[in-house]
């Protein structure tokens, strides 16, 4: 993939959080630009081509939602992850309505943040709509809604199929529980029980049991990852 496609803009006014964000993104291979206030952030986002940006909700001069609104007015569609310390319930809706693409409430685990940035980066890269996904010996037909492993069809409930398809579209990347709840169940809150783990566990049994190698991996503290061995 071309170098510029890994270019991320971080707009964050708290110095320590900004440092941590930049470190975290750099160590997973992104080039990072940092803007410490809203004006700087807006100027950079308008002039350079970023693959993803993270925007702090509350910023000096211009606040995060305003930045995204202005960018969208200018026709700049760089995916934006809003990082907010404000309560989630209504603010999430406002952020997404202003043109934000994802929303994460502070404090967050950095791996969760990274998982979201990865998902958004992939999204801006691959707008091609594939109908057949292949991960190792797993084959997912999105049109027929059929999953096969080593050519044998796996019986899945509709929701289980959706979960598998979401994992498969993000193959090789970590997907958090909250992301699953959001994209598979269309629910916007953080699960407080381990119900998602157990649900994924059942899908995993259907996919992985009796196979040569496991495909669905649990990433401790964060979520799950669908990947074939190297």
């Amino acid at each position: 993939m071309p170098g510029y496609a890994r270019h991320v803009l971080v707009i964050e006014d708290d110095a320590e959080t900004a440092d941590q964000l930049v470190d975290c993104l750099k160590s997973s291979g992104y080039d990072v630009d940092l803007a410490v206030d809203g004006e700087d952030g807006l100027r950079r986002a308008l002039t350079a081509d970023y693959v993803v940006m993270t925007v702090d909700r509350m910023l000096p001069h211009i606040d995060g939602i305003e930045i995204i609104r202005r960018l969208r007015e200018e026709g700049i569609v760089t995916p934006a992850l809003i990082l907010s310390a404000l309560g989630e319930v209504d603010d999430r809706v406002r952020g997404l309505r202003a043109g934000g693409d994802d929303y994460l409430v502070k404090p967050f685990a950095f791996r969760e943040m990274l998982a979201r940035v990865d998902a958004l980066a992939r999204r801006s890269r691959t707008m091609v709509k594939e109908t057949m996904l292949r991960i190792g010996d797993l084959e997912i037909d999105l049109l027929a809604r059929i999953a096969r492993r080593r050519g044998r069809e796996i019986e899945l409930l509709p929701r289980e199929f959706r979960l598998l398809a979401y994992l498969a579209r993000n193959a090789g990347q970590v997907v958090s529980r909250t992301m699953l709840l959001q994209h598979v169940w269309d629910l916007h809150f953080d699960p407080t029980t381990n119900v998602i783990d157990v649900y994924v566990g059942r899908v995993r049994r259907k996919i992985d049991s009796g196979q040569d190698y496991p495909l669905i991996h649990t990433i401790r503290g964060i979520g799950f990852c669908l990947r074939a061995p190297e």
Partner: peptide, 13 residues
């Protein structure tokens, strides 16, 4: 129905 479906594996366990 959706809630029950989500909790089915947990209950099963």
């Amino acid at each position: 129905r959706e809630v029950v479906e989500l909790f089915e594996p947990t209950a099963e366990e």
